[in-house]
Design a protein around this nucleic acid. Sequence first.
DNA 1: TCCGTAGGTGAGTGTCACTATCCAAAGCAT
DNA 2: ATGCTTTGGATAGTGACACTCACCTACGGA
Lengths: 219, 219
Amino acid sequence: MRLADLSERSGVSPATIKYYLREGLLPPGRLINTTQAEYDESHLRRLRLVRAMIQIGRIPVATVREVLAHVDDDSLGLTIRLGAALWVLPHPGEPAPDAADDPDDPSLDVARKRVDDLLARLGWTTAREVGDLSPAHRALVSTLATLDRLGHPLDADDMLPYARSMEQAATYDLDRMETLPTPAEQTEYAVTAAVLFEPVLLNLRRLAQSEESARRYGL
Amino acid sequence: MRLADLSERSGVSPATIKYYLREGLLPPGRLINTTQAEYDESHLRRLRLVRAMIQIGRIPVATVREVLAHVDDDSLGLTIRLGAALWVLPHPGEPAPDAADDPDDPSLDVARKRVDDLLARLGWTTAREVGDLSPAHRALVSTLATLDRLGHPLDADDMLPYARSMEQAATYDLDRMETLPTPAEQTEYAVTAAVLFEPVLLNLRRLAQSEESARRYGL
DNA sequence: TCCGTAGGTGAGTGTCACTATCCAAAGCAT
DNA sequence: ATGCTTTGGATAGTGACACTCACCTACGGA
C-alpha cells in the first residue's frame, strides 16, 4: 500500500498523512527505494486511531504522540502502561493550561475534602492514596470548585450514585479489555475507550435529558 | 462595582472583560458618564458562567453567545428554551466541523440502526422521533461508527446499562432544576449541568477505572 | 528517454482566544 | 488647579495549533 492508497482507504488527505509522519504519529513505511514507501494494515489501523483521537477527542498532536509512545512501550507492565497512557490524556474539567487554578483558593480545599469523603465512602482506597497527583482527581476537584462558585454545589451524596454507575462502567470496560490478546492491544483499547466511550456516555445523557424533559413538560 | 472590581472579584483580567463586553458575552454596565460604568452581582455571576463555559467547557466564544441568548430569551416556553440552549452546545464525539461525516458512509447507517434499536428498547420515543435532527443523536451515531472502524463495536446491549444510568442521572438533574424559581435560572442551571456535570462524570469514570485496574492487576 | 508521480521539506494559512497599545474624556488626590 | 489613574472604545498584534501548499529530487513505466 502506498501513501496515496493509505489516504484513499482512510479518507485522510495525503498532505495530512505526510504531516502525521513528520510529527511521528505514524511510523514511516517500509522504504522500497528513495521515493517509494510501502504501508500495511497496521499503518491504516494506527492512522484511524490517530484520527479518532484528534478529530473526535480533540487531543493535541503532541499529546497523541505521548499516548502512542506509551501504547507502544513494551518495556512497561500493563498497569503502568495503562496508567501512563491515560494519565497524559486531557481531562475534561481541567482549566486551560494558561489559567491554572490558584492553589491557595479556599474553594479548592473544600472541594478536595469532599472528593476525599466520596472516595472514602466508595472504598476507592487506591484513588484516595494517589489523591491529587492524578489528573482525574485534580480535574474533578477543580470542576467541583467551579460548581461551588456558580452556586450549584455538588456534595458527596449527590455524586455517590453517579460514581457507582461509573464503577460499573469501568468494570465492564476492563472485562472487555481483557479479551484482547496483547498488552499493546489492551492499552490501545483503553485509550479508545477513554476517548470514544466518553462521548457515547455524554450523548446518551443528553438524549435522556431531553427525553425526560419532554415527558415532564410536554412537546 | 467598576470594571477593575469585577476583574478583581472574578480573577479575569480587565482586558479579557473588555473583550467579552465587545463580543456581547457580558451585558454592558450602567454608564455613569462617558468613561465610567457600574457593574453589579448579576454581571459577576454571568462572567463566572462565561468563564466556566470557555475555560472548563472549551466552548467557542460565538457558541457561548448563542447559548446565553437562549438563556435570556423570556419569549420562549421552558422546553423550547432548554432545548435551544443545549442544542447549540458542542457535542463531544461530533467530528470537527471542517471534516463532517460523509453521509453516504455505510458504517453510519449501521450505527444509526443500532441507536434506533437502543432507543426503542429504552422506550425513549421522543428521542426516537426526533432522531437524526438532534445533535446528541448525530454525535452518538458518529462515535459508534468510529468505534466500528477501529474494531471495537458497541452494540445496543452494551449500551443499555449505560443508558439506564444516564436516565437516572437526567431525572436527578431535572429534579434539581425544578427547585429553581425562574425559567432563566432553570435554563442557566441546565447549561451549567451540561458543561460541568459532564467532566464530573468522566473523571469519576477514570478514577473508577484506575481503581479497578489497581484491584485487578496490583500496584 | 522522458513525463508523471512519489515522498520529503520549509514556509504559509486560517482560526481562535486573548492581549497590547493608543486615545480622549473624566475622575480623584493633593 | 494639577497630574496620575481609570474608563470605554477601537485597532492591531500574538501564540498555539492543525493543517496545507509549493517546490524539489528521484524514480519507474511507456
